[in-house]
C-alpha cells in the first residue's frame, strides 16, 4: 500500500516540477505519439521517431534542454495555446486554418498523402469517381479528413481519433480505404501487414506547404530561433543523417496538389 501512495505522490510532484525558472532554459516540446515513424511511444515508454530526432537536433543546436510530452491529436493545438508545452514537432501540415491559431516554421518535410486500399477491393486509380460508394477512413482533424470532405462527397467517410485505429479497421475490412500520410502508411505496411496496397498518386492538400513546427502566436521570438536552428541542421548534414535513419528517399521533394490531380 505504501508504494502505491508513493506512486501517486510522485505523479503529483512531477506535475508541479513544470515550475521552472527561465534561467536554466528547458523547452517543453509536444507531439502526438501515435504517428509512427514520425512520433510514437515505444515499449519502454520512450517518445521516439523522426519528429523527435529532428526536435532534439534543433534543441542541441540551440543549446537548450528539451522535455517531450504526448497529447491527443484532436486537442493538440489547444494544448499548445493553453501553454501545456512551448512548441510542437508533430508532422503537422501547415494550413491556412491552422495558421489562424498558431504560427509555423518553414516546412521540414513534405508529408504527401496517398490512398491505401484493401487488396480485395478492385481499383486501378483513386479518384472521386472511382471511389464513389466506398467507405474511406481518415484521422479526425487531419488534413486528409479535410480533403475527403472537400473532394469525396459521394464516398462514405469515417473519421477516427487515431490513425492506428483507422488502419485497424482497414485491416479488419470495416472500411475499404484509408487516406493518410504515405510515409505513415508505408511504415505500417512494412510491419508485416499484407491486407493492403497503395492506390493512386500521392498529393498535398491545396494551401498546405508541408509539415512545420508550431508555436503560440505570441511566441514569434522562439519561432525565429527554432527556424534558424532548423536551417542549421539542414545545412550541416544533421537533417540528412536523421532522414536516412527512417527513409531511403528524399522527403523534401514537393508533390502535386490535390486540385491538379482531380480537376482534369
Amino acid at each position: 500500500m505504501k508504494s502505491l501512495f508513493r506512486i501517486s505522490a510522485l505523479s503529483v510532484a512531477m506535475s508541479l516540477s513544470g515550475l521552472a525558472s527561465a534561467t536554466a532554459e528547458t523547452l517543453r516540446v509536444g507531439t502526438e505519439g501515435a504517428y509512427a515513424p514520425f512520433n510514437s511511444v515505444s515499449q519502454d515508454g520512450a517518445i521516439e521517431g523522426f519528429d523527435v530526432d529532428i526536435g532534439n537536433a534543433i534543441c542541441a543546436v540551440m543549446e537548450v534542454e528539451c522535455e517531450w510530452s504526448v497529447h491527443d491529436w484532436g486537442g493538440i493545438i489547444p494544448a499548445l495555446n493553453a501553454n501545456k508545452f512551448d512548441f510542437m514537432v508533430a508532422s503537422m501540415a501547415i494550413t491556412p486554418a491552422r495558421q489562424k491559431a498558431v504560427i509555423f516554421t518553414d516546412p521540414y518535410y513534405y508529408n504527401a498523402m496517398r490512398f491505401v486500399k484493401l487488396k480485395d477491393v478492385e481499383l486501378d486509380d483513386a479518384k472521386p469517381e472511382t471511389l464513389k460508394g466506398l467507405t474511406i477512413g481518415a484521422q479526425q482533424g487531419a488534413v486528409s479528413a479535410k480533403v475527403l470532405d472537400d473532394w469525396f462527397a459521394d464516398s462514405d467517410i469515417k473519421l477516427f481519433p487515431k490513425l492506428g485505429e483507422a488502419l485497424m479497421d482497414l485491416e479488419s475490412g470495416r472500411i475499404d480505404l484509408v487516406l493518410a500520410s504515405q510515409f505513415a502508411i508505408g511504415d505500417w505496411m512494412n510491419d508485416g501487414v499484407d491486407c493492403c496496397e497503395f492506390v493512386g498518386e500521392s498529393f498535398l492538400m491545396d494551401g498546405t506547404v508541408g509539415a512545420g513546427i508550431a508555436f503560440r502566436k505570441d511566441d514569434a521570438e522562439l519561432q525565429a530561433r527554432v527556424n534558424k536552428a532548423l536551417k542549421t541542421i539542414m545545412d550541416n548534414g544533421t537533417y540528412d543523417e536523421i532522414r536516412k535513419k527512417y527513409f531511403e528517399f528524399d522527403i523534401m521533394s514537393k508533390p502535386g496538389y490535390v486540385s491538379e490531380l482531380f480537376n482534369q
Binding site: S11, V12, M14, S15, L16, G18, L19, A20, S21, A22, R28, G75, P78, A79, A82, N83, K84
Partner: peptide, 27 residues
Amino acid sequence: YYQSQAIVSWLVEAVAPGSHLSISPFV
C-alpha cells in the same frame, strides 16, 4: 484540462512572469 491550464497560466504569469506551471493530466 484545457480551461484550468488557461486560468493557471494566467495566474502564474501575473505573479511570476516568465515561469510556467503545467496542469498534468494526473492533476
